[in-house]
């Protein structure tokens, strides 16, 4: 995912991605099953990716103490170039001051979670809080280079959410990788899950009781629609959530370095062309785009051979 030409950077290949998935108390059998099922599926999906180190805390085992233990280990193991992805599923509460996710035993507050995250050296961190009232956790979790996604815009949206369901779907559905670069970035997954959530309410003519938000500047309010004009989305567009294919394999092949360099060059020219689109006659734009895309396709074909 690239916001503009100026933001283009080849994706760094992280040493590892640490995933922590937590499903809290459901309160009712239906929710217990739903939360645990989603957490288990998410855990399974990320475990299958290269260099993943995944931790799952679900059901009665999802205690604050156990979660702390995992973070202690991650704080030891993770280096600055690694990624950290935390997914919270369950019921959240907000009393006007503190946000908490409901866990067996003592609940975990947003401030406590932030302290655990701060101990991890990984520079790129993504926290996806899909619980009810999760919007209230953004303020305590936000920090530069950390992407915070919440299923609700505030602590007052207290109904159980469906955002988690579509977030997990984003991990499963290759369609979430909108730019088809074989890596689902945090911003892509956010947009995917948010769109599906909105459609869920629209299609059923239900009143939307959740409005997902994203914050990745480390300051200010989280936003519904991250975009260059509100300054949000840049870090999220560069924070990988899940690598789908074997894109990194080619990069490891010295024989293909020249082709890769050529591909980068064509891609940058495509970005430049797209950047100038509004200022060009449509026919001319299409013509140039076709030439560049054909060139890119040919280079890619060579790389893949």
């Amino acid at each position: 995912m690239k916001l503009t030409l100026l933001l283009w950077l080849a994706l760094p290949l992280p040493a590892a991605t640490f995933y922590v998935t937590v499903s809290g108390l459901g309160g009712e059998p239906e929710y217990e099953t739903r939360f645990a099922g989603l957490a288990t599926e998410a855990h399974k999906l990320v475990t299958g990716t290269p260099d993943a180190k995944a931790f799952l805390h679900s059901g009665i085992l999802a205690t604050k103490a156990k979660i702390r233990e995992s973070f202690t280990q991650i704080a030891t193991d993770a280096g600055p170039d690694d990624n950290l992805v935390v997914l919270l599923i369950g019921h959240g509460t907000f009393d006007g001051t503190d946000y908490k996710i409901n866990l067996p035993g003592p609940d975990l507050s947003g401030v406590e979670l932030a302290a655990l995250l701060d101990r991890v050296k990984a520079k790129k961190q993504l926290v996806v809080n899909t619980t009810s009232a999760s919007g209230a956790s953004v303020a305590s979790l936000q920090r530069p280079n950390r992407v915070v996604i919440a299923a609700t815009k505030s602590g007052t949206e207290r109904n159980a959410t469906v955002f988690a369901r579509f977030w997990v779907e984003a991990l499963r559905d290759a369609g979430a990788d909108a730019d088809k670069n074989e890596t689902v970035m945090a911003l892509e997954a956010f947009r995917y899950a948010d769109q599906k959530t909105v459609q869920y309410y629209e299609r059923g003519k239900r009143i939307a009781t959740e409005h997902a938000v994203l914050e990745d500047t480390g300051q200010g309010e989280a936003v519904r629609n991250p975009a260059p004009d509100n300054g949000h989305g840049l870090v999220a567009s560069r924070t990988p959530l899940l690598r789908l294919g074997a894109a990194q394999k080619s990069a490891a092949d010295p024989a293909k370095q020249q082709l890769l360099s050529k591909r980068d060059d064509v891609e940058q020219r495509i970005d430049q062309l797209k950047y100038n689109k509004a200022a060009m006659p449509a026919a001319e734009y299409r013509k140039q785009l076709q030439v560049l895309l054909v060139e890119l396709a040919k280079v890619q074909k060579e790389i893949d051979q």
Partner: peptide, 16 residues
């Protein structure tokens, strides 16, 4: 399709 996702392999193949 490729304007949205230039690296989309099946679309590249179809374009060629």
């Amino acid at each position: 399709a490729l304007e949205a996702a230039p690296g989309f392999r099946p679309a590249q193949k179809l374009l060629l």
